[in-house]
Design a protein around this nucleic acid. Structure first.
Lengths: 326, 326
DNA sequence: TCTCTCATGGTAAACGTTTACTTTGTCCCT
DNA sequence: AGGGACAAAGTAAACGTTTACCATGAGAGA
C-alpha cells in the first residue's frame, strides 16, 4: 500500500442491488443473477442491468456476501514463478489487489503457481500474476471455464499491464539525451518483463548505439544477484556510462556494486530502475508504474470477465521519475 | 501460504448468539448487550452469559457486524519497521494473517508503522507486527482502548511469538555438538529478533566458547547486506567454522559469500538459518517456525482481547531442520 | 384448444448481528 | 393503594446479499 493511499475499509455506502433493481424495473434476484453470470436470465436483460450497475458505480458489499457464505466472492490469486513471487513488487501488488477486491466485495485466496490446478475447487474466478512463456495456467483455466484476468502483456482473454516497453524506452532515451553512449541493460530475458528489453533495444537502435546486455536471472535476492553479475562485468574498469535496470532491485544492487568500487553515480555511470517502489527507489531515477491503479483495473476486468463481456487488454501509462542517479 | 495448506475460504460455522441465548434462556438482545459491555443488563446475567459464551467457544461473526455498519470487523495490521516490512517472512505472515482473519469473518487493512496513529479511525482492533524497543504503538493503542495483539515477545497485553531464543539455542547447540568451536552470530542487535542473540549466547556460554557477533543491519536486501558484511569479516581467511544466522536471508547471503571465496560448506564452515522459508531454505539447515499457526493464534488472541479477557502470551514451538549446510 | 414444458423472472427466507422500541415488573412516593 | 419512574429484558427491524422455490407466459405437441 502506498503510504498516502486513502483506504476505505468498507465499500462506499450507496448503490445497492436494490437501487439497480429499481432503476432497471426488475427484482433484486435478477440483478444478482446478472451480476454473477448465473443462468436463468435473458442476455438482453443482463446487458441492461450490467450497464446500469456501471452507471451508478455499484459496489457489492463484502460483508453481505461474507454473511451468506457464497463462493462467488472468492477470487483465486495465482502467483507466478516461485522464485520471484515474494519480491517487493509482488507484495505491493498483492496488497493492492486485496484492497481492490475487498472494495468489490470479494475475497482473495492465494495459490502458488504449482498449486493452481486446485484453484477451481475453491475459487470462482482468478487473477493470474506474472505469466511467462509456456505458462499453462491460462489454458487450464479457460478449459474449466473459470473467468480470469492476466496481469501481463496482451494476448488471449482479459489482461492488464503497465507499458513496460515504453517505460524502459523512456529511461533509455533519457540517458541518451543526457549524453551517455555506452548503455547496458540489466535484466532477465525470460519472465513477464521481456518487453522491457525491447524498449531498450528500440531506443538504442534509434540513436544508432550498440547494445550491451547483462543477463541477470531473477531470484529471491535480486539485489545480491545484480551486485555479483555487475561486479564481474566491471572487472576491467567501467566499460559503460549508463545502466538501464529492469527493476528497482537490480538497480539497488548495481548502485551498491558501483559504490563498493568507488565508481561515482551519476558522474561516471548513470543508473535507472523500474517500478518506483517506495522503500527502494529513494534517490533512484526510475520509471513509475501505478500499482494501485493496476490492481483496480485488474479487478474491474475480472468483473467484466465474470459477467461474460468481451475480452480486452488495458495498457497502463508509466512515467519517468528523474532523481539523483541519472 | 505454505503450499500444502488446506485453505478454508469461509469462516468455520460455529456457535452464534442465538445458541448462547437459548443456552442461557434469554433473548439475543441480552446476549448482545452482555457481549459488548452495553448497559441495560444486570451484572449477574452478564456474567452468566459471558461464561456460556466462553464454554461454547463463541466467536462473533464480523461479517454480520460489518453488515450492520460498525468497524468491528476491520482489523488494522500495523506493520513494523519500514525497511523490513517487505521481507519474505512478513509477506508470508501477511498472507497467513489475511487467511486467518477471513476465517473469522474479519477484514485486514494494512497500516505502515508511521501511519498507525490513524488506525483507530478505520479499524476496531489491531495486530502489531515486529515491535521494537521504544515502540510507541502499544501505548498508543492501549490509551485509545483499541484491543490489540502483538506479534512479539512477552510483555504487556496479548502477544504471541515463536520461541526465538530457544530456536537459535538449538541451532547453536547443534553446531557445537558437530564439533564447531569458532561460531559467529550474524544478526541485527536491534529489532524484534533480539531474543535470538540471547539463545546464541546461552549455548556458547554453556559450552565455554567465545562469542563473535557480526552485526548486520536489516534492510530491503538482507542477503546482499549479509554478503558484504561477511565478506569484510572473511578477509584474513576464515577465522570461524560455524555461522549462526538470525534468518534465512542472512544465511543465503553468507552462503553466497562463502561460495564466491571458495570456502566449502559445511566442511570448512557450517551455516544455519531461521524461519525455514519455503523459497529460501532449500538446502539450509535452519530453525522452522510455523507461520500459519502463528497467524491463527494471533487472531484467536485478538478475539480474546476484543471480548475483554485477561491478557496472556503464547509461545510457539520451533524445530531444528537438519539439511546440508550444517 | 388444451395442456405440458421451459425459459424467465419474482418472492421471500436466510445469514448473525445491533439497536430502537416495547413490555414487564419492582420500588417508592404521596 | 394507586401511579410514576426506572431498571431489566424482550421483540423485531435493518444491514445487502444469495438462492430455493414459486408464478407467469409463450410455444409446442396432441
Amino acid at each position: 500500500m502506498s503510504r498516502d493511499d486513502t483506504q476505505t475499509e468498507r465499500p462506499a455506502k450507496g448503490a445497492t442491488i436494490h437501487e439497480i433493481a429499481k432503476a432497471a424495473g426488475v427484482s433484486i434476484a435478477s440483478v444478482s443473477r446478472a451480476l454473477n453470470g448465473k443462468p436463468g436470465i435473458s442476455e438482453a436483460l443482463r446487458e441492461h442491468i450490467l450497464q446500469i450497475s456501471r452507471d451508478i458505480h455499484y459496489q457489492p458489499s463484502a460483508a453481505a456476501r461474507a454473511l451468506i457464505g457464497g463462493k462467488a466472492a472468492v477470487v483465486g490469486i495465482s502467483l507466478g514463478r516461485q522464485d520471484i513471487e515474494l519480491r517487493p513488487y509482488y507484495i505491493l501488488l498483492y496488497q493492492h489487489l486485496t484492497l481492490a477486491l475487498y472494495r468489490q466485495g470479494m475475497v482473495p485466496i492465494f495459490f502458488a503457481c504449482d498449486q493452481t490446478p486446485t484453484l477451481p475447487e475453491r475459487a470462482g474466478s482468478a487473477i493470474l500474476l506474472s505469466d511467462f512463456p509456456g505458462d499453462e495456467r491460462p489454458g487450464f483455466l479457460a478449459s474449466r471455464r473459470i473467468p480470469f484476468v492476466r496481469i501481463g502483456p496482451p494476448g488471449e482473454g482479459f489482461s492488464v499491464a503497465p507499458d513496460d516497453r515504453h517505460g524502459i524506452y523512456l529511461a533509455t532515451r533519457h540517458l541518451i539525451e543526457g549524453g551517455r553512449r555506452r548503455i547496458a541493460f540489466i535484466g532477465d530475458e525470460l519472465g513477464d518483463d521481456r518487453h522491457r528489453l525491447q524498449g531498450y533495444q528500440q531506443a538504442l537502435a534509434e540513436a544508432g548505439l550498440p547494445e550491451s546486455l547483462i543477463g541477470v536471472p531473477f531470484s529471491y535476492d535480486p539485489a545480491l544477484t545484480a551486485y555479483r553479475y555487475l561486479g564481474r562485468f566491471l572487472q576491467p574498469g567501467p566499460p559503460l556510462d549508463g545502466l538501464v535496470c529492469e527493476n528497482d532491485e537490480f538497480a539497488r544492487g548495481c548502485l551498491t556494486a558501483l559504490e563498493d568500487r568507488g565508481i561515482r553515480v551519476p558522474e561516471q555511470v548513470a543508473v535507472t530502475g523500474f517500478d518506483d517502489l517506495p522503500t527502494l527507489a529513494a534517490q533512484l531515477t526510475t520509471v513509475r508504474q501505478d500499482i494501485g491503479r493496476l490492481a483496480v483495473e485488474a479487478v474491474g476486468l475480472l468483473g467484466e470477465a465474470i459477467a461474460g463481456a468481451r475480452p480486452r487488454h488495458i495498457d497502463l501509462p508509466v512515467t519517468l521519475i528523474r532523481r539523483q542517479t541519472g
